[in-house]
Computed example of a mutant assay.
Amino acid sequence: MTSEPDMKIVEDTTPTVTKELKKPELIDRVVAVSGLKKKDVKPVVEATLAVLGQSLSDGEQLNLQPFGKTRTVKQKTLPNGQAMTVKLRRSAPSLEETEELPGTEQSPDAPSA
């Protein structure tokens, strides 16, 4: 007769739900935080996203506090675009600075300061 080893749960793998921020909502949040008019904010947000996208495509590291510091780990050209794995590191002061922005909800999974 063989004895079976005791099974133990090593890690809880509860799936997390990821919310998605799309450009129109980003523009609305920037309007709420800045107090500027949407017609003034929209071209700036679009230009910023274009510059950030090009910088990532060029393999540049981004160090944009309080957003954080990014580094492209993997990059692959596909027939329909580009796939990237990007690491983002945020410091504790950066987290605190963005914690109380108007128009944003704190995720229940987000680390608290």
Rank of each mutant, 00 (worst) to 15 (best):
1 M>Q: 02
3 S>V: 15
4 E>S: 11
5 P>I: 08
6 D>S: 11
6 D>G: 10
6 D>P: 08
7 M>I: 13
7 M>W: 12
8 K>R: 15
8 K>M: 10
9 I>A: 12
9 I>V: 14
9 I>K: 05
11 E>W: 09
12 D>S: 05
13 T>I: 11
13 T>R: 15
15 P>V: 13
15 P>T: 10
17 V>E: 12
18 T>D: 12
18 T>N: 10
19 K>D: 05
19 K>E: 09
19 K>S: 02
22 K>N: 04
22 K>T: 11
22 K>Y: 12
22 K>G: 00
23 K>Q: 15
24 P>C: 12
24 P>V: 08
24 P>E: 13
25 E>L: 14
25 E>T: 15
26 L>T: 11
26 L>M: 15
27 I>G: 11
27 I>P: 09
27 I>E: 13
28 D>S: 15
28 D>C: 01
29 R>D: 00
30 V>Y: 05
31 V>F: 10
32 A>K: 14
34 S>Y: 01
34 S>R: 07
34 S>W: 05
35 G>N: 07
36 L>D: 06
36 L>C: 13
38 K>F: 03
39 K>M: 14
39 K>E: 14
39 K>G: 08
40 D>T: 09
41 V>R: 06
43 P>M: 12
44 V>D: 04
44 V>R: 09
45 V>R: 07
45 V>E: 10
46 E>D: 15
46 E>I: 08
47 A>D: 11
48 T>E: 12
48 T>V: 14
49 L>N: 02
50 A>V: 10
53 G>H: 14
53 G>P: 03
54 Q>L: 11
54 Q>R: 14
56 L>F: 15
56 L>C: 10
57 S>E: 14
57 S>A: 13
57 S>D: 13
58 D>M: 00
59 G>C: 05
59 G>V: 07
60 E>V: 02
61 Q>C: 04
62 L>T: 06
62 L>R: 13
62 L>K: 10
63 N>K: 07
64 L>A: 11
64 L>V: 15
65 Q>D: 11
65 Q>S: 10
66 P>N: 09
68 G>L: 07
69 K>I: 05
70 T>L: 00
70 T>A: 04
71 R>V: 07
72 T>C: 06
73 V>E: 09
73 V>N: 02
73 V>T: 08
74 K>I: 00
74 K>N: 10
76 K>Q: 11
76 K>V: 07
77 T>C: 01
77 T>H: 07
78 L>Y: 00
79 P>S: 09
79 P>D: 07
79 P>F: 05
79 P>M: 07
79 P>W: 05
80 N>W: 04
80 N>S: 11
81 G>H: 10
82 Q>T: 08
84 M>K: 13
86 V>L: 05
87 K>V: 03
87 K>W: 09
90 R>E: 05
91 S>R: 09
91 S>M: 06
92 A>G: 04
92 A>Y: 05
93 P>E: 14
94 S>P: 02
94 S>Y: 01
94 S>H: 00
95 L>H: 12
97 E>D: 10
97 E>K: 15
98 T>E: 01
100 E>G: 12
101 L>V: 03
102 P>R: 03
102 P>M: 07
102 P>Y: 02
102 P>A: 00
102 P>W: 05
102 P>G: 04
102 P>L: 06
104 T>N: 01
104 T>W: 10
105 E>N: 12
106 Q>D: 01
107 S>H: 13
108 P>I: 01
108 P>T: 07
109 D>W: 06
110 A>W: 07
110 A>Y: 03
111 P>A: 09
111 P>I: 08
112 S>C: 04
